[in-house]
Design a protein around this nucleic acid. Structure first.
Lengths: 246, 246
DNA sequence: CGCCTTTATGGTCGCACTGACTATAAATGG
DNA sequence: CCATTTATAGTCAGTGCGACCATAAAGGCG
């Protein structure tokens, strides 16, 4: 609530809470879902891989803190960080999730296209951010393994009933690339003609770029290019097939 | 992330954060969606209506705090509070949402059946909790109006693809009562035979109580009784009609 | 140059689900 | 007994989708 204060409540009387943000930033690269990780330079969990994030400052909202930390800790371009669609995942508040003190962490999820210049262009510090295939992140620091698992579940579900898949694609993309996003995140194989029919039948999902086409790595017929449309929701949803995994 | 601590970080050096929980608890009563509110006894917003909630204690998770505050502040039976399905909505962290200090609030949503003895059986304090139709909550304290709006949006969406609607019903209910839940939350009218067909065709959504029936207020054919089944998700979803509102 | 491979794109067919609607059963109140 | 009310059963057409098949347009290679 922010409800009734216990009689005689004094903000400084209790053990203070720290509030942090953690970010699960995904991209699709080479047919695999990757997540942005950093290597911890300090204790605790020094040397372990962790999600980027950090403390919320006294006059900052959680979302502002998330963008600031993302810019500071990773090599992502400032423009991208500023325009990124951040979605709150959930807040992790178990009392002992951080050994130092009571830390409540607000987790966010974001999707970015595969960057032409990877994050290696980085922030300049020795331990810079790395894209890691989600299947090959070993143990992560704190409860970040759980956060990452929750984030994967969430984005898989969101692809079903939103247009977010285009966030994984560059500004102009082919339907084959868009389909690869779905297939990678869901780890399935989709029928190409059916996928095409469904996407084009949803008004505002994608818009054709007139006359544009891109050669598909040299082989095959060039594919038409599309841009993300104004729609955000998918009606009816694009349901993930249940049976056959890739 | 719970990431790298700024050099020389001292938990007590910053203005401390307080962490609270707020609860949007809904029920369906007399064909209207109601939310559980309390009247604030202290400043700020003294006398204003607010969502129940309160401070998270130093060794408590947010969910435990939510259950404790709900039991303390409202007249809900202890058993119900203990078994309630609490879902995290999102966390509100704007710096000035509470005039006293920096308060970050984790909001939860819960659904309960219409209680035979309303909340008036209450906690014993003068200002006890009240069920208020969601259309008639005026201005609420803090940013609770926004939280309530977000919670309504969420439960409307969740009815589409989960079996949560049964949480609004008593242990045994008729399909007419279940349909009324959907119609109330969505503010629509549904076709009864079609609703029935859809619900019964979803395995594990509801289970018939053998031989049981309830007279429907005297008039009409008695309706068969059902219990909530083991399923939690709805495949395929029960989509809300777009056009005709009630 | 002709043929094969590869990828994009266009179309068909049948099934399952849904919305709109009609019909019957079982209770109550006059 | 009949009208009314509510639950339950069934029908029928349209639609979306999965599983296919067919054609178009590029490059590689003999």
């Amino acid at each position: 609530m922010t409800g009734s204060i216990p009689a005689g409540y004094d903000p400084y009387a209790y053990e203070p809470f720290a509030v942090t943000v953690d970010l699960a930033v995904f991209t699709v690269r080479a047919g695999q879902l990757h997540v942005l990780l950093i290597r911890r330079a300090q204790e605790p969990h020094r040397g372990a891989w962790a999600l980027p994030g950090g403390f919320v400052l006294p006059r900052e909202s959680a979302e502002r803190a998330a963008r600031r930390e993302l810019a500071e800790e990773t090599g992502l371009p400032a423009r991208l960080v500023g325009e990124l669609h951040l979605e709150q995942l959930r807040t992790y508040s178990e009392p002992d999730r951080d050994p130092r003190m009571r830390v409540v962490s607000i987790a966010f999820t974001a999707l970015v296209p595969d960057l032409p210049e990877p994050s290696e262009q980085g922030g300049g510090d020795a331990d810079r951010a790395r894209w890691v295939p989600v299947e090959r992140t070993g143990e992560l620091a704190f409860d970040h393994g759980r956060i990452l698992a929750d984030a994967r579940t969430r984005i898989g579900a969101k692809l079903e009933y939103t247009c977010l898949a285009t966030a994984f694609c560059p500004p102009e993309f082919t339907l084959g690339e868009l389909q690869a996003v779905y297939e990678t995140v869901w780890d399935t194989v989709l029928d190409r003609p059916n996928f095409r029919r469904k996407v084009l039948a949803t008004p505002g999902f994608v818009e054709a770029v007139p006359g544009a086409a891109r050669l598909t790595g040299g082989r095959g017929k060039p594919a038409a290019l599309y841009r993300a449309g104004p729609a955000t929701a998918l009606h009816p949803p694009l349901l993930r097939p249940e049976g056959h995994r890739r």
